[in-house]
């Protein structure tokens, strides 16, 4: 490689990484392998901006869910996982924190709504406290439940049926209940793994509006296979392909002027 080409490559690398001041999360040279030779995430570097929505896009199998799950270490539920590199939450290395503390600071919402079917709406919201054996006074619990349900604009819909099972709600309501459950601990970051892929368009719109509302108080990282969703609600976008973070930029910039031909190909529907 000539020096000119190397210099060019250097510039390109730097261009891909957006400059974010005082990031909440800082992912540094992160690689994840499910087994020794099969890397799902390769050398990812990215800072995540506070009180913004960052979308991670890419075709299925590109490693976007694995990257998201690494942020609260849910990926470690797979037994033979190998994680290299670093993720910092402010100045703490999350790989060295206890997962219990970490997951209270970084909440998660999944693809399909998964309220606990044996619990009431009320108990679902407070489930994190119950699971961790944290004892609360009745009034405190009531307050947390009301606050969390108001946060997801579900309070008015369910306030008279708090003791009913969460599974009686519609799909969209269930997903908002799951978001409320994640909010109950007042985490700093909320991770969402394709949260609307099982919802109809009306319910999807409600969840999207909600996320835009929530970014005032929380930092949101969202995996989505839906490009228009990323375009609608995200401030920053990552495009991943075959485990690599190909491009990371302000959403507006990436959608109007992608730098990498692979990003362009994906955004214009040539593959994915």
């Amino acid at each position: 490689m000539t020096t000119v080409a190397m210099a060019e490559k250097q510039v390109k690398m730097e261009e891909r990484i957006v400059d974010i001041k005082n990031p909440v999360l800082s992912i540094q040279d992160l690689s994840i392998a499910y087994n020794k030779d099969k890397y799902a995430v390769k050398h990812v570097n990215a800072d995540i901006k506070k009180n913004a929505i960052t979308a991670i896009m890419g075709p299925s199998g590109c490693g976007k869910s694995t990257l998201l799950r690494a942020i609260n270490r849910m990926h470690e539920l797979y037994p033979d996982i190998v994680t290299e590199g670093k993720i910092n939450l402010h100045d703490d290395d999350i790989l060295k924190m206890s997962t219990i503390k970490l997951r209270r600071k970084i909440g998660m919402v999944f693809q399909r709504p998964n309220p606990f079917p044996t619990m009431s709406i009320y108990d679902n919201v407070i489930a994190g406290y119950k699971l961790n054996g944290i004892k609360l006074k009745r009034a405190e619990r009531d307050e947390i439940v009301e606050r969390s349900l108001r946060n997801v604009a579900l309070w008015d819909e369910v306030k008279d049926s708090l003791m009913k099972k969460g599974t009686f709600l519609s799909g969209g309501q269930q997903q908002r209940l799951c978001i409320a459950r994640a909010l109950a601990f007042q985490p700093e970051v909320i991770l969402l793994d394709e949260p609307t892929s099982a919802l109809d368009p009306v319910a999807t719109a409600k969840v999207e509006d909600l996320l835009v509302e929530l970014k005032k108080d929380y930092t949101i990282v969202l995996v989505t296979h839906n490009m228009s969703q990323a375009a609608r609600i995200s401030d920053y976008s990552m495009f991943m392909y075959l485990g690599e973070l190909v491009e990371y930029d302000k959403t507006k910039v990436m959608f109007t002027n992608p730098r990498d031909s692979r990003t362009e190909g994906y955004l214009t529907g040539k593959f994915g």
């Binding site: 997951r103 209270r104 999944f110 998964n114 309220p115 606990f116 044996t118 961790n132 054996g133 601990f185």
Partner: peptide, 28 residues
């Protein structure tokens, strides 16, 4: 379902807590 266990883990539950508050009530 795995997704219920994951939900509990994502709330900071330990394995034991997942067993007693999610798995056993659902399999009771």
């Amino acid at each position: 379902p795995n997704e219920l266990k994951e939900a509990a883990y994502s709330l900071g539950a330990t394995r034991m807590e997942v067993v007693f508050t999610v798995i056993l009530p659902n399999a009771r």
